[in-house]
Design a protein around this nucleic acid. Structure first.
Lengths: 204, 204
DNA sequence: GCATGTATACTAACCAGTGAATATACTCAA
DNA sequence: TTGAGTATATTCACTGGTTAGTATACATGC
């Protein structure tokens, strides 16, 4: 069973791809379902065969960004040289480079949840909440592995700086704010390590 | 001249008041001009007599929030006890109390600019940019007066934490993130003062 | 009679979602 | 192998409702 059935799967993903580009660059309510269908090269009625509603489509758009986004941050962290503070700072610096691209429009999760703030139970918002929670959990685990005793609040502080830089850079279109946030993160992680690292774990 | 002309002014402000409530709680594109007119107790046509377009109305909504918002932050800072780090932290703690109110929906400037991110020249976005710049400038001046040598980057870092907490708390509906941001701000300001305060200025 | 302000009633476009028909491809019995 | 039947996938054409903005007329006070 299901031998050739991944051809329709391709259609579904083509729709999500078109929706991603439009929703991310224009916003949710600014993009009509017709516009998504046209961008995907098919009819609105076909789109409604694959998705129950526009809300479902929005949720699929964010759902498709969840894992790739987290992987990217993890990869940036792992590829960076230096100690823990420098590796955290590297995430901000890599992000600053991305943010200077004209198509960059901030964090899709935050922008969507800001636009749909009047619909608290919206499925897309749940996905955004889960995404940010996963990122925070990864940070906390990373800090714990490094022996930082204040891993939980430190992870929150880094998250706050990251999401703050998303918001501020999206507003001012000035990626240097992201580097400033990276320096603040560097300071906070460094201070937390001085205060209470189990002083093992200093690999390499 | 202009003796009784403040009666129409009252109408204009009634419209802005209605627009503020609706735009802030529901979002820009989610609120129709008819809805604003109805909330203000008059006709859409009358509204269009006082405002050229919906975009103008949105700009007026944010423009009316600019000074009061800044004054509030300044007042919170001035009313707080303790040294500079504690006074900065107090802003976050006061904000956390506000954020626990069910009507709280984050920062109107940030949410509007997120929703209108596809319209870079929009007048409302310009107002949002100016607002955040004013706040940053006030922070920097405050730090400079206290003799902090790294006043400029420190002001940016505090701004990043503040806007980060707006975004995160609006997403998770958990004001404790704001207190965490306040602790981070406390640390950063404290570290900056230890590094380079001209060690005068310690009033009171 | 002339400025300002307010209301009624309208337009032209747009939008989320659907009904009904059609095309394609896979299954299974003869 | 073939042909009828069935589930999957797609399209055209439509509906009912909403939206930003306007043409026109009416009121009110100077």
């Amino acid at each position: 069973m299901q031998t050739m059935t991944d051809i329709p799967r391709a259609t579904r993903e083509r729709i999500i791809s078109a929706a991603s580009k439009l929703f991310y660059s224009e916003g949710i309510r600014a993009v009509s379902v017709d516009a998504v269908a046209e961008k995907a090269g098919l009819t609105k009625r076909t789109l409604y065969y694959h998705f129950r509603s526009k809300d479902d489509l929005v949720a699929a758009y964010l759902g498709a960004r969840d894992q790739p986004n987290l992987s990217l941050f993890r990869r940036w962290f792992e590829e960076a040289d230096g100690g823990l503070p420098a590796k955290v700072r590297a995430i901000f610096n890599r992000l600053a480079r991305n943010a200077s691209h004209p198509k960059w429009k901030g964090c899709g999760f935050l922008r969507t949840s800001a636009e749909l703030a009047n619909l608290p139970g919206h499925p897309a918002i749940k996905i955004g909440v889960a995404h940010k929670k996963k990122f925070e959990a990864w940070l906390r685990a990373t800090f714990e592995e490094a022996g930082v005793t204040t891993a939980a609040p430190l992870a929150r502080q880094i998250l706050l700086l990251l999401d703050g830089s998303f918001a501020v850079v999206q507003l001012h279109r000035d990626p240097t704010y992201m580097e400033t946030a990276g320096e603040a993160a560097f300071s906070l992680v460094g201070a937390a390590m001085k205060a209470g690292p189990k002083s093992g774990q200093r690999k390499r």
